[in-house]
Simulated assay, not measured.
Amino acid sequence: MLRKTLVFLLPFGLAAWGEFVHWRASRAQVRDRLPASSEAVVVLGYRDTGTVRANVLNRWRVRAALRSIDANLASSVLVCSGGSGAASVPEAALLARYAVTECGFTGTVLHEDQSRSTWQNIENVIPLIEQVDQIKIVSNPLHAQKGRLYLRHQRPDLAERLVRAADYRLGEAWPVKPFFALYGLRDLARCRRNLAGK
């Protein structure tokens, strides 16, 4: 009986753990809000090999970025970041295309299409976000936390403008959250070790 109970509860425990890890990551190294009239919402691309349409993970990231935009601000810009990698079309172009043609976004879109890593994503978007009052970095929450960690290392002054995005929702994609949590925590630990050695 105990074994059956444990087998039954294990998936719920893993799901709850995944939710908690993502919830905590979405609130790490950010403020809830700032007095602001302008913002940049930076969406980070992920290993897209498509030439016409962004992959499923990148489409989710775009939707999370669009719901992160504060409609009450005078100016919001969507910054799509990602180079071509294994594909002939840069991730940034696929992200922007999905935002505009399939999600109906009509605001300002900027492209950063040279980066091949998260470090380069952040490094290369800096000239595009320096003038705004607040910055949101959007990806799955643990990857976004990695991006914020890199911004804090590269430009601590800009990191003070980081505010929370809407890339975490309770129950969204819950079956894969434990796997993303495990990978993301290991990746963050590796990044922190690497940064400590610089």
Results as ranks from 00 to 15, higher is better:
137 I>C: 02
148 R>W: 03
21 V>T: 14
148 R>A: 07
132 V>A: 00
103 C>M: 13
37 S>K: 14
121 N>V: 11
85 G>A: 10
13 G>F: 08
38 S>V: 04
47 R>S: 12
55 N>G: 14
25 A>E: 10
162 L>G: 01
171 G>I: 07
131 Q>M: 04
98 Y>M: 08
133 D>A: 11
94 L>P: 09
138 V>A: 03
162 L>I: 00
4 K>C: 02
35 P>D: 15
137 I>A: 02
173 A>G: 08
131 Q>W: 01
125 V>K: 00
164 R>A: 15
26 S>L: 07
170 L>T: 06
127 P>H: 09
25 A>S: 15
125 V>G: 00
22 H>N: 15
188 L>T: 09
55 N>L: 01
137 I>G: 02
185 L>C: 13
85 G>V: 04
43 V>L: 03
162 L>M: 04
129 I>R: 02
147 G>C: 09
55 N>V: 01
116 R>G: 11
112 E>L: 02
37 S>R: 15
37 S>E: 14
176 V>D: 04
80 C>A: 14
174 W>C: 07
17 W>S: 04
46 Y>W: 14
100 V>S: 09
12 F>V: 12
137 I>F: 01
151 L>K: 00
116 R>C: 11
151 L>W: 00
76 S>G: 07
186 R>W: 13
64 A>L: 05
54 A>Q: 10
142 L>G: 09
177 K>M: 12
82 G>Q: 05
176 V>I: 09
156 P>C: 03
79 V>E: 03
170 L>D: 04
75 S>K: 14
27 R>S: 12
64 A>G: 08
5 T>W: 14
123 E>S: 10
138 V>N: 12
95 L>I: 01
168 Y>N: 15
81 S>Y: 06
127 P>L: 03
195 L>H: 05
46 Y>V: 12
45 G>R: 07
76 S>V: 01
196 A>P: 06
4 K>Q: 14
195 L>C: 07
134 Q>I: 00
57 L>K: 02
107 G>T: 06
91 E>S: 08
69 I>D: 03
156 P>T: 06
65 A>C: 11
14 L>V: 05
33 R>I: 01
103 C>K: 11
17 W>C: 14
148 R>K: 13
193 R>N: 04
72 N>L: 04
95 L>Q: 08
152 R>H: 07
173 A>Q: 13
119 W>M: 02
53 R>Q: 13
163 V>L: 01
21 V>G: 05
121 N>R: 10
80 C>R: 06
187 D>G: 08
106 T>H: 07
1 M>H: 13
34 L>R: 04
119 W>Q: 10
62 V>W: 08
118 T>C: 11
194 N>E: 15
167 D>Q: 13
19 E>H: 06
146 K>H: 15
124 N>W: 05
49 T>D: 04
133 D>M: 05
160 E>Y: 08
15 A>M: 14
48 D>H: 02
